[in-house]
Simulated scan of single mutants.
Amino acid sequence: MKVLRKIFPIIVVALSSYALITDTTEMLIPYILLSMGLMLLVTGINEFQKRKVTAFALFLAFGFSLFVAIKFFL
Rank of each mutant, 00 (worst) to 15 (best):
A69E: 14
I10C: 15
L38E: 00
K71M: 07
F48D: 01
V68E: 03
F67D: 02
A55W: 11
M39A: 11
L34W: 08
M36W: 06
I29F: 04
R51L: 07
I21C: 02
F67G: 11
M36F: 08
L74P: 10
L38F: 15
M39V: 02
D23V: 00
V3G: 04
S65W: 01
F67H: 09
E26S: 12
L20Q: 12
V42E: 02
T43K: 07
L60C: 13
T43H: 02
R51I: 09
G37A: 15
T24D: 12
Y31I: 04
A19T: 02
K6I: 10
F8M: 05
F73K: 11
T25H: 07
M39T: 14
G63I: 07
K50V: 04
L40I: 06
I70W: 14
P9C: 10
I7Q: 14
L20A: 15
L38R: 10
S16G: 15
S65K: 03
V13R: 05
F56N: 03
P30R: 08
G63N: 06
N46I: 13
G37T: 10
L38Y: 13
L58W: 11
M27P: 12
M27C: 09
L41S: 04
V12N: 03
A69Q: 12
Y31M: 04
A57S: 12
F67M: 08
K52Q: 14
M39P: 10
L20C: 13
K2Q: 07
I21F: 09
Y18W: 09
R5K: 12
L4V: 02
E26V: 11
M1Y: 08
R51K: 11
S35H: 06
K50W: 09
L66R: 14
G44Y: 06
I21W: 05
A61K: 04
I21Q: 02
P9F: 04
F8C: 07
L15C: 05
F56G: 03
L40P: 03
A14E: 04
F62A: 02
T54S: 06
A19C: 00
L66W: 15
L15F: 11
L58C: 04
G44C: 01
Y18K: 08
K50C: 08
M1G: 12
S17F: 04
M27I: 13
I10N: 03
T43R: 12
F72C: 06
L38S: 15
L33E: 01
A19R: 01
K50M: 09
M27F: 15
T25W: 14
I7T: 08
L34D: 09
I11G: 03
V68D: 03
I70K: 07
I21S: 09
L58E: 03
K71Y: 14
F56H: 06
I70D: 09
E26T: 13
M1W: 07
F67S: 12
S35G: 04
L58H: 10
S16I: 00
F48T: 07
L74C: 09
L15A: 09
S65A: 07
I21P: 07
I10H: 11
F64Y: 10
F59P: 00
F59V: 02
Y31W: 00
F64R: 08
